[in-house]
Design a protein around this nucleic acid. Sequence first.
DNA 1: GTAGGATTGATAATCGTTATCAATCCGAGC
DNA 2: GCTCGGATTGATAACGATTATCAATCCTAC
Lengths: 143, 143
Amino acid sequence: MPTTGPELRLTPQRRAVLEVLRGCTDHPTAAEVIDRVRHQHPGIGAATVYRSLGLLVESGQALELSLGDGASARYDGNTTHHDHVVCDTCGRAVDVPRLTASPITTAARGIAHDTGFDVTGYDLRFHGLCADCQRLNGATAEA
Amino acid sequence: MPTTGPELRLTPQRRAVLEVLRGCTDHPTAAEVIDRVRHQHPGIGAATVYRSLGLLVESGQALELSLGDGASARYDGNTTHHDHVVCDTCGRAVDVPRLTASPITTAARGIAHDTGFDVTGYDLRFHGLCADCQRLNGATAEA
DNA sequence: GTAGGATTGATAATCGTTATCAATCCGAGC
DNA sequence: GCTCGGATTGATAACGATTATCAATCCTAC
């Protein structure tokens, strides 16, 4: 049962990618990760970063977020359970602590029963406008 | 304040797309919508379907779902508030009725306070394995 | 030290989606 | 009914993100 982790060899490139994810509190896209990794590791190829991100996600050391902007995936080095608020306008995501889960886990049991799914978790994504975009939006609306 | 709806002209093509969405309970990708629309409307161009989907979403007559598979967007003609269970393996999504929202809306207020976001809503996405993939998975695991 | 598999980086290929553009449609006004 | 003008269509090209390919290089085990 090799589900736990296929013994990921931590090469310098992979370590660099992991350190970028660990060392930031925002949720960079793959392109942003590539930029940042190249500060420490100039020659690294884009394919290597994509591969490393995939491996880190697969081995549970990072999360891949699909934040609903139709655009690119974002990555999160914070693997503790938490949710996000996402800005509808600029796509910025901020971590929020996970709810006291009881009402949702209760719902999950009901859903499992109704749908036949083996429900293993959930993602809760709040959305709205971040403080910056509220300001910009207000300015635009006045024009 | 034209937020409500920019008076969408309901051309035959757009009507056909809308009818496909209304007439199915799954959550087709754009490619699947194109296939289905062509049954009723053989000559329709892919660009037109993409445009129509965008307009329907914009005018509130359909929802665009980002279901976390890194892949393509899915569309939902059911615009009443509801959430989804998504299969981690095959990407299939099933509607689930919206939770009695109180604990979550309470959380939303706290989040708004903490992050400065104007929180306008949330998406709750359960995930796990659908009944079919549980079967397949069991079979594979035995091999 | 060597063989062999894993990893890398460059590049091409793929996929979903959006932009472009000429042709056509449709409604308002005559 | 006819004409004008903007909206819409469909084909195609363009685009951005991601993945596949492949030769060169690196480690590890022997």
